[in-house]
Simulated assay, not measured.
Amino acid sequence: MPSEPRSLRKWIRVACLSVHAPLSLLAVLALLASGPVACASRPPSDALAATRDALAGLDEFGALLLGAGLPVEAIPQGRSVSPVQAERLRRYFAILPYLPQHYAPRCVADELLRYVERHGQGLSRWDLSRMVQEYRSLFLLRQDGFLAAALTGEPAQCVGPVAVRDDGAGAGEFEMGEFYTRGDGESWRRADRPSLDKL
């Protein structure tokens, strides 16, 4: 019987040396040891790189289209928008389902795209982004009864349930398709459409 007790470390070493692992297991362990130690050591995936790059280069007009529910990959690239592109985007919007917050930006986008079609030639993204700014203080009535910011679709105030009328649809004194602005205090008044030809 040994006179002094063996330490735990010594017992572990003896146990490891007495086990004879097969050569194939040692080869597998060597292979695993040569690779990355953990998943965290791998570089992040670039699966969303195209989306990230597209969003980084977004101008006012592109942000409007995105707010209107257009997928990032469908936003036109380039420095101008042609009448053909405008027509294609309007058709895309016609079949694309949307959420209530997309309604107001989609109305503004449709108005700008119709202007490009009528203009008959390409319009620069810079000009379109300037035109977008003309809608910054305007609101539209959504189908859910909220007056919403024209550019973002952000609800500002619920004015009541929307009902179908002889001349369209609306809630109380508000009509769908008309622009409104907030006057002094909390009062609302109808606003003129921006005159895009003067810009």
Rank of each mutant, 00 (worst) to 15 (best):
V81Q: 07
I75R: 12
E73K: 08
G69Y: 04
E60G: 12
T51L: 07
L70C: 13
A74F: 14
R90T: 08
A49Q: 11
V72Y: 08
A49L: 14
R90H: 03
T51I: 10
L48R: 08
L89E: 12
A63Y: 05
Q77L: 15
D53G: 06
A68F: 01
V72P: 02
V81P: 04
L70A: 12
R88N: 12
L55T: 09
T51G: 03
A50E: 07
L64M: 13
A68I: 02
A63T: 11
L65S: 04
R52T: 11
G67K: 05
A68Y: 00
L58V: 09
L66E: 03
S45N: 01
G69I: 07
I75H: 11
T51F: 06
G69K: 01
D59M: 11
G57T: 08
A56K: 11
A86R: 05
G62P: 05
G78R: 11
Q85T: 15
E60I: 02
L48I: 09
E73G: 02
A74Q: 15
A50D: 09
L65K: 06
R91T: 14
G78Q: 11
A68W: 00
V72Q: 07
P76E: 10
L64C: 09
G67T: 02
Q85K: 13
S45T: 05
P83A: 01
Q77H: 14
A49K: 12
A47K: 04
L58C: 10
S45K: 00
T51E: 13
R88F: 10
Y92E: 08
V81L: 15
L65V: 07
G78I: 12
A86W: 03
S82V: 04
Y92K: 07
L48M: 13
V81D: 02
D46T: 03
P71L: 03
L89W: 08
F93T: 01
A68E: 00
E73P: 01
E73S: 08
G69E: 02
E60M: 07
A54T: 09
E60K: 13
P71S: 07
L70W: 03
